[in-house]
Design a protein around this nucleic acid. Sequence first.
DNA 1: AATAATCAAGACAAAAGACTCCGAAATCCA
DNA 2: TGGATTTCGGAGTCTTTTGTCTTGATTATT
Lengths: 155, 155
Amino acid sequence: MYLTQKSIYAIQALIYIALHDHGKFVPTREISKRLDIPFSFLTKILQVLSKQQILETYRGPTGGVRLLKRPTQISIEQIILSIDGDRLFTQCILRLPDCGNSKPCPLHDLFAPIRENLRDMLSHTMLSLLVKLVRENQAKLTSISNVNDLLRLKQ
Amino acid sequence: MYLTQKSIYAIQALIYIALHDHGKFVPTREISKRLDIPFSFLTKILQVLSKQQILETYRGPTGGVRLLKRPTQISIEQIILSIDGDRLFTQCILRLPDCGNSKPCPLHDLFAPIRENLRDMLSHTMLSLLVKLVRENQAKLTSISNVNDLLRLKQ
DNA sequence: AATAATCAAGACAAAAGACTCCGAAATCCA
DNA sequence: TGGATTTCGGAGTCTTTTGTCTTGATTATT
């Protein structure tokens, strides 16, 4: 509804990567299994995040993906912008192509502030906060697993 | 993004119908042409609004659709609920099936108030307000036409 | 050098959303 | 009564999003 599945997977994967960021590369297969994200779909998403300089990839054994920035420097807005573009933050709710302050749709004046709130919230929310909530078990990353499942070593 | 195309068409069509509500039925074909909405698609949408008791239909020459309620009694939330259901107002931004106050996703606490704002805004915004804005030419219903095009008699 | 583990990339398939078509039923009017 | 105009309802098509499969390139380990 609000986000595409791609953006959702991207946010979940980045939280997982940040949770396991000890300098080593995290394999995509591991992320895929733990978060139940289709592997080949996930690789494409991580490739985009790699081109956006949010993470780097490394091939071969011991390979995988690794953050290029600290979680305190990655906003959720930035992740969404990398994957979905700015549609969520700019598009008219009635999808009029030229809706704006000069040619508003009938809902523009009421909707624009809400859209702005959403953007502000997401631009001020850093990956580090979400990681903290998950690590402290105050939030869940998937419907099934808790943080202990996610942090446990490979089985 | 936020709304499905169906809901958008429903809102536009209801504004158009309210603009032309002089007791007569407005033919679907006319709405379709004036608002550039695919005719056969629009008929299905109007059928749903008819089952929801928002409008009534009438067949044959001089037939069409007509509001069953006054525009002051039809909220935009109600239109969206009729067509899309309550996904926009209830679904988790990360689409976790059981996200809520007890099992929140990492964005729940920040996102839920924004989703509530949107719902409040749409539940307090009545069709009559949007009609007023369009009639007074303070807002546009489509990217091309202004209110004079919409109010002009059949050409 | 051989093997295994990993990402890269393109073609393909399935699902969902958006839209079309067609025959039938209702209604008006000549 | 017959033809024109409209909605009704079901099936089907098209497009976008989501997900799969296969082959190839890179790299660590033995």
